[in-house]
Write a protein that binds this DNA or RNA. Structure first.
Lengths: 254, 254
DNA sequence: ATGTCTTTGTGAACGCGTGCACAAAGATGG
DNA sequence: CCATCTTTGTGCACGCGTTCACAAAGACAT
């Protein structure tokens, strides 16, 4: 997962476990693909394979939504698409603002999957006056002075933060004060928000570091295995290597 | 979290829980900020607040790495930065390739936090011949025909996929065949990989849908609370509303 | 050297999530 | 109408992760 939730830890919503909610979009995507191929029904086994999960898990997930399957047959694709969409709240329109129209913000604005399911980019906002009026993805960028007005006029409740880390908390505070209650944060910072506001973060750097951890471990194991069983910490022959298992309070490449 | 892991489910690496590994980058970021402000030591309480976690959790996380704190005082910032960096494998250099230089790929290439900690963009790869040679973020884009050679020449073990969904699995297969063992996937698809290869995914669409779920729930609760206790599904006055709790196997806005 | 005070490190309990394995349900064919 | 076969829905057990609460450890003052 390239993400981690913040806040709202144990508040099981209407009995649907958080882990299940996180998988529903996955199922929905697989089901939509089946729907486009006009497949009428699908078994838990097939759908689970398409979504990359265990079939028992999938069945249990669906059981939280209700009994939508038919034993001996499987699930009706269209029906399930509708039920999951409704459960996720995708049968209504969600206006979204993107704040911070740099490289990433522009990429997000252009992202097709954005508009595809109930989400609509209501406005693009940037602090740079030079950006104001310039169209990105067909939408004119507006200056952040008007942030509050934009939020209120469009009834926006979901905000995307794609600003530099330094500006993120201030933007977040303004969004929340203006009425936004869900935030998707791409800035590499921990945001603090009042209760009742959901924050999800997407952090490239964290994901890479997690991969590096496992990568290092794989390299170490492999070296140990071919060496003769010594559980060495890390042993890569390429690239400059620091002390193998040093304990010195050294400085870092930062 | 804007992510979910795939594969390597229970394989506790060297005794460090996966959940802890996922938090180490967070601690590292907070510690680096302290280090830049020349703060010598920090207590678990302070650091936990900066990282947005519980202090007991933080102490337990650190206990997996060893006893690096001093009772009555706290943790030495520099020392801890080094230990976590080493544990995450950031004391070595990780060449990374980005495949798919569209809006998102370009944004990633330009992302500063990329190079900051041990990661180096070794190459940008795209399937479009028109892109070949064109510099993005100061690095010339190379054609995907040369993918295998690029991987091998640079000793790349981490690949980032930023292609359209349709191309992702094919790119993934080629990366893995060429020797990549860790993949960060931005394409909205489930990738299947052989054992021993780690995949982490970052999926904007999924994150938004999770937010929408909670948002809908909040709106419902609020309406129920002000209405008189009926647990209605959703009741927003703005924007067109579908049937409130319909059960019909209807079609979807897709 | 001794006492006090702060903060770590961890034992233990609890809750969530996962996966097995099977009974119940329904379709299908004779 | 009955038997068989497929597939769902779920009870149950297990393991991971989180949190509490406290004993042990060390700093610091006297």
């Amino acid at each position: 997962m390239a993400t981690g939730r913040t806040h709202r830890p144990a508040t099981r919503s209407r009995g649907i476990p958080e882990a299940t909610v996180a998988r529903l979009p996955l199922y929905l995507r697989a089901l939509t693909a089946l729907s486009e191929r006009s497949v009428p029904t699908v078994s838990s086994e097939e759908l689970a394979a398409a979504a990359g999960v265990n079939s028992a898990k999938l069945r249990k997930d669906f059981s939280y939504l209700g009994s939508y399957g038919t034993r001996g047959v499987g699930y009706d694709v269209e029906y399930l698409v509708y039920q999951i969409s409704r459960e996720l709240g995708l049968t209504q329109d969600w206006p979204v603002v993107i704040v911070g129209i740099g490289n990433l913000g522009a990429a997000l604005a252009n992202y097709g999957g954005f508009a595809s399911r109930g989400f609509r980019v209501a406005a693009l906002i940037d602090a740079d006056p030079a950006m104001a009026g310039k169209p990105v993805a067909g939408i004119p960028v507006q200056h952040s002075d008007d942030l509050e007005k934009i939020i209120q006029d469009n009834g926006v409740s979901i905000g995307v933060i794609a600003t530099p880390a330094g500006a993120a908390q201030a933007v977040c505070d303004r969004l929340v004060a203006a009425g936004v209650t869900s935030i998707l944060n791409f800035a590499p910072t921990v945001l603090s928000v009042p209760d009742g506001v959901d924050v999800r973060k997407v952090d490239l750097s964290i994901e890479l570091q997690i991969l590096a951890f496992h990568e290092q471990r794989k390299a170490g194991e492999e070296a140990a295995a071919s060496d003769g069983g010594v559980p060495a910490a890390a042993a890569r022959s390429d690239s400059a290597d620091q002390g193998p298992d040093g304990d010195m309070p050294a400085v870092m490449p930062a």
